[in-house]
């Protein structure tokens, strides 16, 4: 399958990428290409310009910055998985990154591409939201709370580029997903982050967009055990029902994945 014709340009800097984007009638940035290229091949999108971000220096790293872990937007899932800094700071993030898709997908796919795409079943959005991360872009900083605005949509403006994500380091955290057996995307994934003073739970895969579960947060704040998570009745209202599973099934999975995430955080 060939995509529709387009012009490919390798940007050398963020500024150059934004300028190229501004000059084009219809441009897309290319990071790992693990979403963009399949959708172009299916001709769901047919940009005039593809602006490659892969030659821009300084976008691939994971480093400790005080009480935060900062990860560059073009850091590939395999590199996050193998990062000693990330392992030391937020082991749950390593678990998440190393369970995205398969090894070849992890060799290309990137953090920035994943959150910019905001697939309802993607893994990373749950970590960004549960850890209350800050998304840094070519123009500003956006709080996780404001970043994910709906199904496949984010607060990013036309041409705005994600450059890094800054994750506050929690006291303990855990991630558990029930992968779709074919694609490995999350049927349901739950990220639990305990900061001592606050506790946040983010759910992906279950609804049209990643969301926080406040009832679960309140219950786990009082009693941080897998049983507490499992005991909460999750309403299927507004959850996804499709050929892979009903809304009721996904609601049930939220409790189970949350309990496994707590178990992982306690381990």
């Amino acid at each position: 399958m060939y995509p529709a014709p387009f012009r490919f340009t390798r940007a050398k800097t963020i500024e150059e990428a934004e300028t190229l984007f501004g000059k084009s009638q219809d441009a897309r940035y290319l990071s790992g290409g693990m979403t963009l290229i399949p959708t172009m091949k299916l001709r769901l999108v047919a940009p005039e310009d593809v602006i490659d971000l892969n030659a821009i220096p300084g976008l691939s790293f994971a480093r400790r910055d005080g009480d935060r872990l900062v990860v560059g937007a073009r850091t590939r899932h395999a590199d996050v998985s193998a990062s000693p800094e990330a392992l030391q700071a937020i082991p749950a993030l390593i678990h998440l990154a190393s369970h995205i898709g398969d090894p070849a997908v992890r060799h290309r796919g990137t953090l920035g591409g994943s959150i910019a795409n905001n697939d309802p079943a993607a893994d990373y959005p749950s970590a960004v939201l549960a850890l209350n991360a800050t998304v840094k872009t070519s123009r500003r900083e956006i709080l996780a709370e404001d970043f994910f605005t709906g199904m496949f949509s984010t607060a990013l403006e036309e041409g705005e580029i994600v450059t890094s994500v800054s994750f506050p380091i929690p006291r303990r955290a855990g991630y558990a997903k029930f992968p779709n057996p074919a694609s490995r995307y999350a049927m349901v994934g739950v990220f639990v982050a305990d900061f001592g003073h606050t506790l946040r739970v983010a759910v992906t895969g279950a609804g049209p967009c990643v969301f926080r579960h406040t009832e679960m947060e309140n219950a786990l704040t009082k009693n941080f055990t897998p049983e507490t998570a499992k005991a909460i009745r999750i309403s299927p209202d507004g959850l996804n029902g499709d050929l892979h599973g009903s809304a009721e099934y996904r609601a049930h999975l939220v409790g189970i994945m949350a309990s496994r995430a707590v178990e992982a955080a306690l381990a």
């Binding site: 693990m34 997908v105 060799h107 074919a182 694609s183």
Partner: peptide
């Protein structure tokens, strides 16, 4: 598959296994 699922197209790009149906030659 031609849809990034099956791995029949796998090659090494600068030492890492990748799916060659999901990468442009210009890359």
């Amino acid at each position: 598959c031609d849809t990034s699922q099956c791995g029949c197209c796998m090659v090494h790009l600068s030492g890492r296994a990748i799916k060659a149906c999901t990468l442009f030659a210009v890359q």
